[in-house]
Design a binder for these strands. Structure first.
Lengths: 378, 378
DNA sequence: CTGAAAGCGCTTACAG
DNA sequence: CTGAAAGCGCTTACAG
C-alpha cells in the first residue's frame, strides 16, 4: 500500500478518453463515436468501449469537449442584483429575490432536458466593469439570458453578435429576442377592476427602476385606463419603488413625511415593492384596503401570505424562464446562419391574469376548505 | 456592404488570442503573459497587447483556458429537488425553495470575488441516473458543493477523490468537508423555551426527509431536552414532513383523520414544513398557539410574515453558502496534495439562535415602529 | 524579456 | 467500420 502513486495523493486524476481507449483496445476516435452515437460502430466495439467506460467511471471533460467543437452545454444567466439599503429592515426580502429565482428555476428544468446547465451570475450595476464581467461569462457559455436590463444597448449589440442572447423584460433588438409577461393586458384588467369595480378615482403608480420596460409599459397601460375613465393618476420621481420592498417603504415614508395626501389606491410595479408599501402604511395606522388599496404585480408565492392578502397580476413565472431557455436553445445552432437566426428580433409575450384578493378592497372569499389559506385563518 | 464575410452572417466569431497577437505584433505567449500577469513583460509589450485587446474586445475562451491548464473558474452546485405532490396546493411554495436559493446566493457573492461562477443543477433523486448527472456536472467544474444528501456514500467517495467536494447539511468523510448550522445548540434553546418558559409537556417532532443529518440531529437534541424534563415527545413515520409545506400539511391531515390527539407543541424540522402545519391546523379551526404551538427552523424570510408569526431558529443562511464556497476554494489547489487537502474531513458548524415570535405562544412584542412588522398590523 | 512549440482532452474530417 | 492526425484556443516549460 502507498506504492501506487495514484494512491498516495487522495486526488487521483479522472480518467481520460485515452485511458478508455487503451483498456478497450480501440482508438480514441472509436470511443468518442460510441459515446456520441456518431456513425454506427460495430456491436463488439461498442460493447468493449462501454465496458471500459463503466469500469473506469469515465466522463468526458467539459472543457475539452467544448474546445473539440461541441457545445459547452452551458448557458449564462445574468441577474441584476439590487443595491443594498443600509438602513433597511428588508434586507432579507431583498436578498431573497423570489421573482428572478423562480424564473431561473423554470429555465433550469427545461435546460436539463437538453443537457444544459445554468451558469448564474448576478451583477451590481454600480460596479464599473459589470459589462466586462458579462462578456467574461459569455466566454464560458453557449448563450446568454439577461434579466432586466443589465447591459447598455451598445454592449448588448456587440455581445449579441458574438453569441446568442435572449433578454427577459427587455426590448428586442435585431440580434436578440425578448421574453416578457403581457403587461398591457394584465395591467388593463387590474386598472379596470380598481376603477370600475371599486370606483377608485385617485390612483398612484409606484414605478420600478428607471428605464425598465416592464415598469414603463405597466405604467402606460395604467395611465391609459385612468385617463379613459377621467380619474387621476399620481406618478413621478417620488413614486418610485425600484422593485424592492425597501424602495416601496421609503417612497411611502417620504410622501407621508412631506404631508402628501395619499391616493385611494396604490398600484405597485411589482409585488416586492407592494410588500414595502403595505409595511409602511401599517406603521402609520393607515388601513389597507379601507383607507388605501394596494396592488402588486407578478403574484410571487408570498403574495397570498401577506396581510391583507395581496391582489396582483399573475405571470407564470417559471414559464418565463422556460420560454427564455427554449428560445435561446433554438438560437444556438452550430455556427452562424443556422435556423435559429430566423427567430431573432422577436418579442415574445406570455399571458398574465388578474388575481383578486383582499388588498384591492375585495371581500375575503367565503370560508371553506377549498379556498382558505393560512393568511385568512384565525 | 455584404462583401466582408464577417458582415453577412450576424454572428461573427469572437476574436482569439491569435487575432490579438497579430494586431499587437507579438506572439500569443506574450499576450497570454500580459493578460495573466505572468513574468513581467516590457512596458511597451504590455501596452501594445492591451491596446489590441481593447480594440478587438478580446476575452479568453473559458474552455480553452481550462484545457490549457488553468482552472475552469466554475463550481458545480447540486440542489435536491423535491418531488411534486400532485394534489398539493403548495406547489408554488415548494418550487420556491427559499432556503437553498438563499444559500446559493451567499455562495455566489463570495464566488464572484474570486472570479468563479456557479453552475447550478437540481436533481430529482427518483431519477435513476441522478448520480451520473452529478458526475457530468463535476467535469464542467473545478469543485462541487452538494446540498443535502444527493449522492450515496459510495458515489460521494468516488467523486471526492476526483474533485474537491463540500457538502451542506451532510456528514464529513475523509475526503470531503461538511458545512452546517449548529443544530444542537439551536434546538436546545428552542426546546428549553418551549418546555421551561411555556411549560409544554407534550411535544411532537415533525421530521425532515429520511436520513437527513440535519433532521436527525435536530430531533435528537429535542429528544434529549424533552427526556431531561420528563416530558413526552411524539415521533415516528406519521410525523414526517420531508421539509416541505405539502408534507407538513399532509402529516397533520392524516393525524387528524386518524383521530390522533395532537400534542401541545409541534416542533418542525424546518420553516417550510411549519407553513404547511399552520395551514392544516387553521383549516381545522385549531388555534395556534392557543391550542397547539408550532415552531420552525431556519428562519427563512417568509417566517415573519406568517400568521401567527413563526418562532424559529435562525441560521445565517447566506453564511452557510459563503462558508461552503470559501472552504471549497481552499481545497481547489493546483493539483493534488496542495495546502487545501489538509482541511479535508472537517465538519464546520455555523452558529444559530432562537428567534421568538408568536407561534410558540409568546406575546406579540409591544407596539412601536421599531418592532412592528406587516404581519402584526391591522 | 520573448518566441516557437508542446500539450491539455476532446471531436471530426480524411484515409483506408 | 476504424484509426492516424489535425485542430479547437489557450498556457507554460523550454530555448534563446
Amino acid at each position: 500500500m502507498g506504492i501506487d502513486p495514484a494512491d498516495t495523493d487522495g486526488a487521483r486524476q479522472p480518467p481520460t478518453i485515452y485511458d478508455v481507449a487503451r483498456t478497450a483496445g480501440v482508438s480514441i476516435a472509436s470511443v468518442s463515436r460510441v459515446l456520441n452515437g456518431q456513425r454506427n460502430p460495430r456491436a463488439e466495439t461498442r460493447e468493449r468501449v462501454l465496458r471500459a467506460v463503466a469500469e473506469l467511471g469515465f466522463m468526458p471533460d467539459g472543457a475539452a469537449r467544448a474546445l473539440g467543437g461541441r457545445l459547452k452545454e452551458v448557458i449564462g444567466v445574468v441577474v441584476r442584483r439590487p443595491r443594498w439599503f443600509d438602513d433597511s429592515q428588508f434586507a432579507d426580502e431583498d436578498e431573497n429575490l423570489q421573482f428572478p429565482d423562480m424564473i431561473n428555476r423554470g429555465m433550469e428544468i427545461v435546460a436539463q432536458q437538453h443537457g444544459f446547465d445554468l451558469l448564474v451570475r448576478s451583477v451590481d450595476l454600480n460596479e464599473p466593469d459589470a459589462g466586462r464581467r458579462i462578456f467574461a461569462l459569455a466566454r464560458k457559455s453557449d448563450g446568454l439570458i439577461l434579466h432586466d436590463r443589465v447591459l447598455s444597448p451598445e454592449a448588448l449589440d456587440r455581445l449579441s453578435r458574438q453569441i446568442p442572447v435572449v433578454t427577459l423584460a427587455g426590448v428586442p433588438t435585431p440580434t436578440t429576442v425578448n421574453v416578457h409577461g403581457d403587461n398591457e393586458s394584465g395591467m388593463r384588467a387590474l386598472a379596470r377592476h380598481l376603477i370600475v369595480d371599486h370606483s377608485y378615482r385617485t390612483l398612484a403608480y409606484l414605478a420600478g427602476h428607471e428605464g425598465s420596460p416592464d415598469s414603463l409599459s405597466r405604467g402606460e397601460a395604467l395611465a391609459a385606463q385612468v385617463a379613459a375613465a377621467g380619474a387621476t393618476l399620481l406618478t413621478g420621481e417620488q413614486w418610485r419603488g425600484r422593485y424592492q420592498a425597501a424602495g416601496g417603504a421609503r417612497a411611502i415614508e417620504r410622501l407621508i413625511a412631506a404631508g402628501t395626501e395619499l391616493p385611494r389606491a396604490i398600484v405597485c410595479a411589482n409585488d416586492q415593492s407592494a410588500i414595502g408599501v403595505l409595511h409602511a402604511l401599517s406603521l402609520h395606522g393607515i388601513a389597507v384596503p379601507g383607507d388605501v388599496a394596494v396592488t402588486g404585480f407578478d403574484d410571487i408565492p408570498v403574495a397570498r401570505h401577506l396581510r391583507p392578502r395581496l391582489t396582483s397580476v399573475r405571470q407564470s413565472i417559471q414559464d418565463l424562464g422556460a420560454t427564455a431557455f427554449e428560445t435561446l436553445y433554438a438560437m444556438i445552432g452550430r455556427g452562424a446562419g443556422g435556423p435559429g437566426d430566423a427567430a431573432r428580433g422577436r418579442d415574445i409575450a406570455l399571458p398574465t391574469r388578474l388575481v383578486r384578493r383582499q388588498s384591492c378592497g375585495c371581500d375575503p372569499p367565503p370560508a371553506g376548505p377549498a379556498s382558505r389559506t393560512v393568511a385568512e385563518a384565525g
